[in-house]
Deep mutational scan, measured.
Amino acid sequence: MAEQVALSRTQVCGILREELFQGDAFHQSDTHIFIIMGASGDLAKKKIYPTIWWLFRDGLLPENTFIVGYARSRLTVADIRKQSEPFFKATPEEKLKLEDFFARNSYVAGQYDDAASYQRLNSHMNALHLGSQANRLFYLALPPTVYEAVTKNIHESCMSQIGWNRIIVEKPFGRDLQSSDRLSNHISSLFREDQIYRIDHYLGKEMVQNLMVLRFANRIFGPIWNRDNIACVILTFKEPFGTEGRGGYFDEFGIIRDVMQNHLLQMLCLVAMEKPASTNSDDVRDEKVKVLKCISEVQANNVVLGQYVGNPDGEGEATKGYLDDPTVPRGSTTATFAAVVLYVENERWDGVPFILRCGKALNERKAEVRLQFHDVAGDIFHQQCKRNELVIRVQPNEAVYTKMMTKKPGMFFNPEESELDLTYGNRYKNVKLPDAYERLILDVFCGSQMHFVRSDELREAWRIFTPLLHQIELEKPKPIPYIYGSRGPTEADELMKRVGFQYEGTYKWVNP
């Protein structure tokens, strides 16, 4: 592979701008107003304001973009700056750019259920340069409990009458099928589907988006991507930290609602779906819905739930269990780990287990898709061969690698495990991989909904998990304890083995 010439960040961002501006969906010269509902909250200060700053800094926003914060707290732009700027990672050389960014910011205080507050917000936006005809993007960085009041008031008082209007809704989209349907029906009564952007930030990850290209742009994968060759698929999300004093919020939802029903299920769809007619948003989402419709409700015998306990040999936070978090209700049975087996009941995947695993306070930070292939028929190497695996590593250190057998150097035919490896950090030294939120917010500006969740996708996802969630809430089974920093409950490994996964433990990928 030829040595790549190092590029400056300015040059890299210039390439990104060229890609972005050559499309006809990006209205570079139009006025846009980006409204952050819930501007005083954690999500706004840690993710949304920093993301908008990065896009502005790199010249990736339309030229005439204004940012308006809205929340109940009586704040000023200076207050917003004070709480969000520490997350910007701005350099001293960017000081003038930073001043320009905050000059485009404003803030309006108001209630979430008060019509007069929204009329005041609308008047404020109209007073901005060309504000009355601007395109408006409303980001709901809010708890779902206020979605209905907020969307109703936005629709009645704050819509642009000339430009387009788009609304970005953060997960969780309800707690179960019934609450999700209620919320979807409410929002759909106010906005068209092409105006609604239900954001799952995992769909903005580079390697998640790469799944489609790997599958449908490489001839070698087509013939082997089926039940005849693939023994099982494992989708993993692991965090090495616990709730760390923020367990009160987590306890309301648990690990299945927080990660599995959305992030992991979306990745499953991209692995299992048929080739779409095109890369058009609805063509892709149509195929994802077909996959979900082929999955039956989760069966309790295919589920393992766990909850982390303190590690007596650990240090600091590792010595504390979930129930030691003062914000967690006493005696909570909320799971911090889950392993679930699903089956896609169609011709391509009949009988292939899709194993979804996620948890907190585990032994490493990792998100990946792992396809394990069947054993080689007619073994001539005296059971020395391990199964081939194709691994798409989402985070950290984005990579695609194939675990395969090669001859060990020497005189004899002794096979050993090795890999074919594409590590993004080595291959793409001159490429700026956008943060997931950067990519998705740019998608909203461009009107691309491919990486957002459609209402029928959402409904099918909740259909699969709601009976299990209701059973857990009714019966309150005690989750299996696992030690902070471990791989999780051993019962999860036993479940995976029972459905056909072979864990060798003899080879570990190392970032080159």
Results as ranks from 00 to 15, higher is better:
206 E>Y: 04
154 I>R: 00
101 F>I: 00
150 V>P: 01
152 K>G: 06
88 F>V: 03
156 E>Q: 07
38 G>D: 08
66 F>R: 08
34 F>A: 08
230 I>S: 01
171 K>G: 08
34 F>I: 15
9 R>D: 14
250 F>P: 03
83 Q>C: 13
72 R>W: 04
119 Q>T: 12
247 G>T: 11
99 E>W: 02
57 R>F: 01
59 G>I: 01
216 F>H: 02
135 N>Q: 03
178 Q>Y: 13
239 E>I: 08
176 D>N: 09
155 H>Q: 08
215 R>F: 01
163 G>N: 02
241 F>M: 15
145 T>C: 14
181 D>H: 06
244 E>D: 12
72 R>E: 08
257 R>L: 06
207 M>D: 14
47 K>N: 05
112 Y>M: 03
11 Q>I: 07
98 L>N: 00
55 L>G: 05
230 I>H: 04
133 Q>L: 05
112 Y>C: 03
220 I>H: 03
29 S>I: 05
243 T>G: 09
255 I>L: 06
215 R>K: 08
39 A>S: 02
26 F>N: 05
78 A>I: 05
24 D>R: 06
150 V>G: 04
238 K>L: 13
124 H>N: 06
198 R>S: 03
84 S>D: 02
224 I>N: 13
252 E>D: 11
215 R>D: 01
133 Q>P: 15
18 E>H: 06
224 I>W: 04
101 F>C: 00
114 D>K: 10
138 F>E: 01
228 D>N: 09
59 G>Q: 05
244 E>A: 11
41 G>Y: 04
235 L>G: 04
21 F>S: 09
2 A>D: 15
62 P>G: 05
222 G>K: 13
189 S>C: 04
170 E>F: 03
163 G>K: 03
250 F>I: 10
221 F>N: 07
120 R>S: 08
244 E>F: 04
63 E>Y: 15
257 R>T: 14
95 K>C: 13
219 R>T: 14
23 G>S: 15
192 R>F: 09
101 F>G: 00
114 D>N: 08
173 F>G: 06
205 K>D: 15
108 V>N: 02
162 I>A: 09
41 G>W: 02
82 K>Y: 07
52 I>N: 00
153 N>W: 07
95 K>L: 12
91 T>R: 12
237 F>T: 05
242 G>S: 09
48 I>F: 02
114 D>V: 10
234 I>S: 15
222 G>I: 04
120 R>P: 05
213 V>H: 05
136 R>K: 10
31 T>E: 07
165 N>T: 11
105 N>A: 08
10 T>K: 10
216 F>S: 10
73 S>Q: 08
50 P>D: 00
207 M>Y: 15
64 N>R: 08
111 Q>F: 06
209 Q>P: 06
117 S>E: 07
40 S>D: 07
185 N>K: 11
8 S>Q: 06
51 T>K: 08
152 K>R: 14
71 A>H: 06
21 F>M: 10
57 R>W: 00
215 R>S: 01
170 E>M: 04
227 R>L: 05
39 A>I: 03
43 L>N: 03
76 T>Y: 05
157 S>D: 08
34 F>W: 05
39 A>T: 01
10 T>S: 15
149 A>K: 07
10 T>E: 14
187 I>F: 11
127 A>K: 11
158 C>R: 01
240 P>C: 12
162 I>C: 09
226 N>M: 03
69 G>E: 00
72 R>G: 12
138 F>I: 02
174 G>E: 08
147 Y>R: 15
58 D>Q: 08
219 R>G: 14
189 S>I: 08
61 L>R: 00
225 W>V: 03
213 V>L: 05
228 D>I: 09
253 F>T: 13
180 S>D: 14
3 E>G: 07
34 F>K: 01
222 G>C: 09
107 Y>P: 01
87 F>K: 02
128 L>Y: 08
92 P>T: 10
137 L>E: 02
241 F>D: 14
93 E>H: 07
85 E>K: 04
28 Q>V: 14
147 Y>K: 13
14 G>M: 06
25 A>T: 10
201 H>P: 10
253 F>L: 10
97 K>F: 03
253 F>K: 14
161 Q>E: 08
194 D>S: 09
239 E>F: 06
24 D>E: 12
167 I>A: 02
56 F>P: 00
193 E>Y: 02
227 R>D: 01
202 Y>M: 15
205 K>P: 14
159 M>Y: 10
190 L>D: 06
27 H>D: 07
245 G>E: 12
192 R>I: 04
21 F>E: 05
256 I>Q: 01
117 S>F: 07
158 C>F: 03
90 A>C: 14
194 D>M: 03
212 M>K: 01
175 R>F: 06
242 G>R: 03
111 Q>G: 05
51 T>C: 08
93 E>I: 05
234 I>F: 11
106 S>L: 07
56 F>N: 01
193 E>S: 03
54 W>I: 04
35 I>R: 01
199 I>Y: 02
117 S>D: 14
30 D>K: 13
167 I>N: 00
191 F>V: 02
121 L>E: 00
93 E>T: 10
132 S>G: 04
31 T>L: 07
23 G>H: 15
147 Y>I: 13
152 K>M: 08
170 E>I: 03
73 S>M: 08
28 Q>M: 11
257 R>W: 03
50 P>R: 05
132 S>H: 13
250 F>M: 08
14 G>P: 07
35 I>M: 03
183 L>D: 07
55 L>N: 05
42 D>R: 10
28 Q>E: 06
16 L>R: 07
218 N>K: 00
103 A>E: 10
89 K>N: 11
160 S>R: 04
99 E>Y: 03
25 A>S: 13
36 I>C: 03
132 S>C: 11
248 G>H: 12
77 V>A: 08
14 G>N: 14
134 A>Q: 07
58 D>F: 04
215 R>C: 00
